[in-house]
């Protein structure tokens, strides 16, 4: 693979400056028949030419692979890890990684030195402005080494995917009593928990254990003390229950809730029109939920769907 890779070479502005100066000197050397001047001119020119050879050599036998990418929230910066291995017998210097097809690449990655035979990783900082799964088609590796007169570069196709979660934002209060909205199964599955949760009317046939006797003694009706337990009365964040028209806002709100719950180590579930995750906790669940939010119908898809819908309805007509 590295053998067939084409390394391009392009003179930098400084090279043109030098060429201009040398041309002027060449004219004057011709004018005054300054032969030694011609020799030294040739010398400086040759140094530039040899430096171009070194610039190409600097990029030869580099193996570029994509590393891991950690998902980020929209509005943050994602860092794409790029692994570079130097397969040559000599060190490489001043390697710059960027990706011109991707205007999101904010900060190109830079490796000052890559010793012979070793590998290093560096990161491309990408401006993650919109949620979704994004793809970087590859990286351009360039170098100004050794003299800065020529820039050698090559294009390395890579599959660098990165995931951007919706930006956590919103002002709605976290739903804590979704149980009442009927998302839980019947109370028969209730297990005794530790935390007092609420009082509800006594249903005949229930165990007498949890009846609030103190209240009964005060003359109140029979009420049953209900206790919250793991996996049950935890909220399920539902996309369809959120008010507001804007899909992105609703997703942001969900992301915020998920983030808060995760930080507080609470259990939570997520329901989107297409997917349902029952309440759980932990890193894996957290990322699974956020991923679902991230890839939920992006702008383009929605438009495409609307268009389809539109055309269908017009056909009907």
């Amino acid at each position: 693979m590295p053998a067939s890779r084409k390394i391009h070479l392009r003179p930098t502005p400084f090279c043109y400056v030098l060429a201009g100066l040398l041309f002027a000197m060449w004219l004057s050397a011709i004018n005054w028949e300054n032969n030694l001047g011609l020799l030294v001119l040739a010398m400086v020119g040759s140094v530039a030419v040899v430096s171009a050879v070194h610039a190409r050599r600097n990029l030869a036998d580099l193996e570029i692979t994509a590393g891991k990418v950690f998902p980020v929230f929209a509005g943050q910066y994602a860092s794409l890890i790029i692994q570079t291995r130097n397969r040559k017998g000599h060190d490489s210097y001043d390697l710059c990684f960027d990706s011109p097809p991707m205007p999101q690449v904010k900060i190109p990655a830079h490796l000052a030195q890559l010793p012979a035979g070793s590998h290093r990783s560096c990161e491309l900082i990408v401006d993650a402005h919109s949620r979704g799964r994004h793809e970087v088609p590859g990286v351009r590796v360039s170098t100004l080494y050794p003299l800065g007169l020529f820039r050698a570069w090559f294009w390395q196709p890579l599959t660098l995917n990165y995931l951007v979660y919706p930006q956590p934002a919103g002002s709605q209060i976290q739903p804590e009593h979704f149980a009442k909205m009927g998302w839980y199964s019947s109370s028969a599955t209730l297990r005794p928990g530790e935390e007092f949760y609420e009082l509800r009317p006594y249903l005949p046939g229930e165990s007498l254990h949890h009846v609030a006797w103190k209240l009964v003694a005060k003359g109140r009706p029979w009420l049953v003390k209900e206790f919250a337990t793991d996996g049950l009365e935890h909220p399920i964040f539902d996309f369809s229950h959120l008010s507001g028209e804007d899909v992105e806002q609703r997703l942001s709100q969900l992301a915020l809730w998920i983030q808060e719950s995760h930080q507080d180590d609470n259990l939570y579930g997520l329901r989107l029109p297409v997917i349902y995750y029952p309440p759980s906790s932990g890193e894996e669940h957290y990322h699974r939920c956020l991923t679902a939010l991230a890839i939920y119908e992006t702008e383009e898809k929605r438009k495409a769907r609307k268009r389809r819908h539109h055309s269908r309805s017009s056909k009907k007509r």
């Binding site: 692979t65 590393g67 891991k68 890890i81 692994q83 010793p115 035979g117 070793s118 590998h119 290093r120 990783s121």
Partner: peptide
């Protein structure tokens, strides 16, 4: 040292 670094580095970019 290079070998050590390679090992550590490889562990960082494993899937």
């Amino acid at each position: 040292t290079n070998y050590l670094l390679d090992l550590v580095n490889h562990s960082r970019c494993m899937a």
